[in-house]
């Protein structure tokens, strides 16, 4: 056998053992006073616990809502079935929310996955670039009227959106303040997120129409597409969100204006 294959195979076997999969790694290691199984378990614990800790750091409100035991249980399942894909643990957690949504718990606690998704968007927003360049009004004014339908507006990178069919905004606020009261959780909730200069992220509740307009912008829809799909005149929304700095540039056909 090619010797370079040996190292590769050892690592494949080791990795399988860390994930409780079939492996013969124990035949290739010795642990002094301890059995190979015992020392492999130490490495397995380091892997699983450190990744669970990373998830808990990224999803603190989800953790608070479901409790320690439940969170640890689902986090372990997630870690073992979806280990990190990069050597930077800060990147870990993408897809956790949609994975939660597929679990049986979602039938009884559907808001849990939605809150997790909100937390993931919050974390990504906190890491985003902040751009405060003025909107290019002169470029917009210079466009021929025949091209208005082809305009696409873009959100500044420090803004993000999150929407759910459950009341994630009030639930998140209550969890942040540790003050829970009875609310109708089956109310759709839409949120505009904005990174602040102190690296916190502010949440602003949106009406569904505002959310759909901004969502259309993030999806790269033209104004004509948005008007057609939502059945609205988008000009009001354009003015509002340019004024707020949410929309900070536009593109038209092949050209970018910022």
């Amino acid at each position: 056998m090619d010797k370079s294959m040996i190292l590769s195979q050892l690592q494949t076997e080791f990795g399988a053992a860390l994930r409780y999969q079939a492996s013969d790694i124990e035949q290739h290691v010795s642990g002094g006073l301890f059995s190979a199984e015992q020392v492999i378990q130490l490495y397995r614990n380091n892997f699983v616990i450190s990744c669970c800790d990373a998830l808990q750091a990224s999803f603190p409100v989800t953790h608070k809502l479901v409790g320690e035991d439940f969170f640890t249980s689902v986090a372990r399942q997630w870690v073992l079935s979806n280990p990190p894909q990069s050597g930077n643990i800060i990147d870990y957690g993408e897809g956790f929310a949609s994975w939660l949504a597929e679990l049986p718990l979602s039938a009884s606690l559907p808001y849990v996955a939605s809150i997790a998704q909100l937390e993931w968007v919050i974390e990504q927003t906190a890491s985003a670039e902040m751009v405060f360049e003025p909107f290019p009004f002169a470029d917009l004014s210079a466009l021929p009227a025949t091209q208005y339908s082809f305009i696409r507006f873009h959100l500044a990178p420090q803004f993000s959106l999150c929407g759910a069919s459950e009341a994630i905004y009030p639930l998140y606020q209550m969890a942040q303040q540790d003050q829970f009261e009875a609310i109708n959780l089956n109310m759709p909730s839409y949120v505009l997120l904005q990174k602040q200069p102190d690296f916190t992220v502010s949440l602003q509740p949106l009406d569904e129409a505002d959310y759909q307009f901004l969502l259309g912008c993030t999806q790269g829809l033209t104004l004509a597409n948005i008007a057609e799909q939502l059945g609205i005149d988008p000009s009001h929304y354009v003015q509002t969100y340019i004024a707020q700095g949410v929309l900070n540039r536009f593109s038209c056909l092949e050209n970018e204006y910022e």
Binding site: S8, Q11, T12, F14, G15, L18, R19, Y43, N46, F47, S50, C51, A54, P83, P84, Q85, S86, G87, I89, Y92
Partner: peptide, 12 residues
């Protein structure tokens, strides 16, 4: 710390 595209967040 990684094999076959999977990372283990540890110094193995």
């Amino acid at each position: 710390g990684s094999i076959n595209g999977q990372f283990f967040n540890d110094l193995l």
